[in-house]
Amino acid sequence: MLQQKRWRFAILAILPTLAIFAWVRMYPIVETLRLSLHEWNILSKNKPFIGLANFRELFHDQLFLNALTNTSIIAFGVVILTVPTAMVIAGLIHHRTHSRFSGFYETSVFIPHVVSLVPAAMAWKWIFDAKLGPLNALLEFFGIPAQAWLFDPVLSVICIIVLCSWQALGYAVLIYLVGFKNLPVSLFEAAKLDGASGVQRFWHVSVPMLKPITLYVSVVTLISGFNVYAQAFVLASDSQGAPGRQVRVLVLDMLENSFRNYRVGYAASEAVVLLSIVLVLTLIQFGLLREKGRK
């Protein structure tokens, strides 16, 4: 009787949230999966089922393959640049926890992570600007010819990686700081007694101990790298000024297929590819963590 009353309260209390959840999360996710198997031109009423035809077409679609390559390069580039840097910076900040500037370090490293994307990207647009930008001026100062950073297909990818890393770093440092704080102090003291230097302690004690954190940070950074959109939109306009066209990324390609070419089913199949990438990354993470737990 009492149990039943509590059950009734629990269901009534969670029902509104659950309803919203089903409506704005679960339904559209299922709908994405369903649409990816259909051909749906926004203008036509019927949506014939076409099986995997969308996916087969995707892998011959030069624009999509181009977007997939760019996005992967950006995502991995950001991880390679961010994760080691974050580990070292967090290690140093942790070492100087008692310094009176440690709050300043943490805050300024974290600020790029919280400022809105577009204004922050504007700052970098200026830095990379071919005519006005300080980067080219600096290069010329050292006798290196100026580059058209944002108009060259290779250089503009690098610019996006730099911008994304600048933003991702603060989050990674923060997570590492939590990790460093949770490391057992006794281990470091033992290493110190054995005569290990600071660098040795970092390399032989901290790095292996922080492996789960490294794994977590890498996967989170990779996943957000695969969802890159705003950065490419702002930085990489092509010569006609069409935003984001210079460096095609997955989300942009998806939105174009859906809202410019009116091929919603096809765009949904791209979304499914993106989802599969994210799922595989997450599964790898869980797998590696579990393996570690068993040892």
Binding site: I14, L18, F21, W23, V24, R25, M26, Y27, P28, I29, E31, T32, L35, I223, F226, N227, Y229, V251, M254, L255, S258, V264, A267, A268, A271, V272, L274, L275, V278, L279, T282
Partner: peptide
């Protein structure tokens, strides 16, 4: 319910925003 909620947490917003747009 909790497992369902956790499972959707993995899916990035960009994946399902097009159907959500039609809603």
């Amino acid at each position: 319910i909790f497992i369902l909620i956790l499972a959707t947490a993995i899916v990035p917003f960009e994946v399902y925003m097009i159907p959500l747009y039609f809603q």
